[in-house]
Design a binder for these strands. Structure first.
Lengths: 249, 249
DNA sequence: ACCTGAACACCGTTCAAGT
DNA sequence: ACCTGAACACCGTTCAAGT
């Protein structure tokens, strides 16, 4: 331990070492505990030393996203666009499951870093290679949105602290009371929740198969994309421009 | 001003006054500047005084979401499920456009407050009333996800500070250099961006019609829901359970 | 020129002292 | 019993003093 820290202190800091340590720290203790100060401490360094390798915390987070993108499989070239897109999204999803901090960090990113632009570019290229018009590709990319990264903004995401099965510790009476309360106030939620969880008395959100739900929505979108593509769908805006081109051309 | 503050000090604090002030403050200065301390100052009160009306900041944010939900139109009863769902989502979207803080706050919510549960419940009820099976309703709600609130997690959302048209201040040379850089590194992005912005030299993300893109994806999903509903789609899991019921019933 | 301790301007929340 | 100032344990980042 002491030896490790001394070794760490001997090796000079570098942007890569900083990012690597940030990723490891976020994996271990969660992103909410990753502060410049804590990260510096982890590296056996004074906080200000980090600022020579990253301009500020935003840039640190951008860098972390970069390493995340690096873990996503490159697109397969031999399958159709649909398979290629799906495989890539699912690969991104696996990367995000390995690094739970990826989601909140991606959501908060606002800088167009090369890593993110490159990832987006390769997605667009898959659609174009599949014969999609530039116009349809544009809208389809918007529709995909953050699902490109393998996550969806869910109704209720599990709070960081709350492990699954927390319900098990409740007294039957309390559970019964909650049940009656739900039945009175939120009858529709209860109906769906009961069907999904098979009357084991859990409330909505628990007991859902996240992977299934993600792929359900993804397939729904991809099928929709395919349908529009086959019928040569064009947005009114693009149609209008086509009219203009015809008129002036 | 002084009189206002004194009046404010005279009227006793209440949960409603706290929430109302929080909403107004967030509308005016942005959510990132809404702190317990700043809010207290705005109310002419010592920070700790707030804690008698909200347990902590989380509960304050939950309360703000409550007032937001209150601004969303109730479901129309006489149209079909598709119209009812779409109108409600678009109403939520308008509420969110009036209160830009709603999105980040909703994204960060993890508590199942009555307001949110009630909103969800009414959505589920719309699908069930439309004849959707409980099973399909469940998956469809997941697929809808945060789109229920009228927003999508976009690839790049405009950073809070950056107004549209910031590009206009760039020198032509810089713009040309950026253009060449994009062409070399992200050819597919450039293709789409140019088509979307009609060669006025802007980069991707600018010049998109957010409302169009939102409705494009929403319609794609709703059409998908409709198709599955018409063909009596059932998840394998529900099919399996049906088999079990048949076997043991 | 490089490095870094101290400081600045904030947080949310606890807690004990004052009324 | 109620209220609140001071304090605690943090932030990200600036800046000037030290080597």
């Amino acid at each position: 331990m002491t030896q490790q820290m001394e070794t760490a202190r001997r090796v000079p800091l570098s942007r890569d070492r900083v990012l690597e340590a940030a990723v490891r720290l976020a994996d271990e203790v969660g992103i909410e505990l990753v502060s410049m100060r804590r990260l510096a401490q982890e590296l056996g360094v004074v906080p200000m030393a980090l600022y020579k390798h990253v301009a500020n915390k935003e840039e640190l987070l951008d860098g972390m996203v970069g390493t995340l993108v690096g873990e996503i499989d490159p697109p397969v070239g031999d399958a159709g666009w649909k398979t290629a897109v799906k495989l890539r999204v699912l690969s991104a999803r696996r990367a995000l499951l390995r690094h739970p901090w990826g989601r909140p960090v991606l959501e908060s990113r606002t800088n167009r870093t090369p890593a993110v632009l490159g990832y987006m570019d390769s997605f667009i290229a898959m659609f174009l290679a599949g014969g999609f018009s530039v116009d349809l590709t544009h809208h389809v990319m918007h529709a995909l949105g953050s699902r490109m990264w393998g996550f969806t903004q869910e109704l209720f995401d599990d709070p960081a602290g709350q492990a699954a099965g927390g319900q098990a510790e409740m007294h039957p009476e309390v559970q019964a009371a909650m049940y009656r309360e739900m039945a009175a106030r939120y009858p529709s939620i209860l109906q769906v929740a009961m069907a999904a969880t098979h009357d084991d008395g859990q409330v909505v959100g628990q007991g859902c198969d996240d992977q299934f739900e993600f792929e359900f929505a993804l397939d729904l979108l991809l099928d929709g994309f395919e349908r529009l593509h086959h019928q040569d769908w064009t947005s009114k805006r693009a149609k209008l421009d086509q009219g203009w081109s015809d008129a002036i051309g």
